[in-house]
Design a binder for these strands. Structure first.
Length: 105
DNA sequence: TTTCTGACAACAA
DNA sequence: ATTGTTGCCAGAA
């Protein structure tokens, strides 16, 4: 690999998020080795729109807030996708967030 | 090349 | 508790 793209690593992790679970930018960043590169993770997800099969709706910020929903086609889309997986969204945040959180290993 | 911005996070005041 | 600043990485102007 020439670059070992940071983005590719992000996608790799995001694709591994199991059904009915969510994760955070910080967690992914930490898994990648840069505990403070959460911003770049979000940036990667932004570019992931071009890539298919990236469940970006399962990635939220550390508070469980759906900060990225504004980047979806519709503001309701992200929420609906999550609720379809058993994740309840209340006021743009994940209920029982600590239970739904998934950490890459 | 420099500067700014961005789906974040941690810390200082 | 709220606001401002800094760190991190990549891309656009």
């Amino acid at each position: 690999m020439k670059k070992d793209d940071f983005f590719q690593r992000v996608y790799h992790v995001v694709k591994r998020i199991p059904y009915g679970r969510v994760t955070t930018y910080g967690l992914i960043a930490k898994y990648l080795g840069s505990s403070s590169s959460a911003r770049t993770v979000g940036w990667a997800l932004n570019a992931s729109h071009n890539d298919s099969s990236i469940p970006a709706h399962r990635v939220v910020n550390r508070k469980g807030l759906l900060t990225g929903k504004h980047h979806f086609k519709g503001f309701e889309l992200m929420r609906q996708l999550l609720e379809s997986e058993g994740i309840i969204i209340e006021d743009d945040k994940v209920l029982d967030f600590e239970q739904k959180i998934w950490t890459p290993k």
